[in-house]
Amino acid sequence: MRHWPRAVLAAALASFLALASAADAAQPPPGASSCSGCHGTVPNGTPIPVLRGRPAHDIAGLMREFRSGARPATVMGSIAKGFNDRDIDAISQWVVGQGQ
């Protein structure tokens, strides 16, 4: 029986890591999971554009324009002002790959 604990430990650790890394892959940066409340992830004919699948750096650029007011908006100006550059880059990365 002496070999059990080690095998057990390895097995448990392996599935622990599997879960942890699966979770990491899907773990959104703070703020990012709110975006999909308005932006669908598949084209559905609504006037709010889909972000998924677009270049992250385009999204980040648009967010900065919303934040500075350079780009007129109904709600995005007020939303973008809640995030700094680092947030914006992380969120943009995440939303373009969302649901994959």
Binding site: F16, L19, A20, A23, A26, Q27, P28, P29, P30, G31, S33, S34, C35, S36, G37, C38, V75, I79, G82, F83, D87
Partner: peptide, 27 residues
Amino acid sequence: AQGKACAAAIVDLLAGRTPAEPRLVSA
């Protein structure tokens, strides 16, 4: 927004990690 952030926090807690501070948008 809370439902999604809570799900993320629970995944962290079950994996033994400390959840990140959430940031939420409401409209």
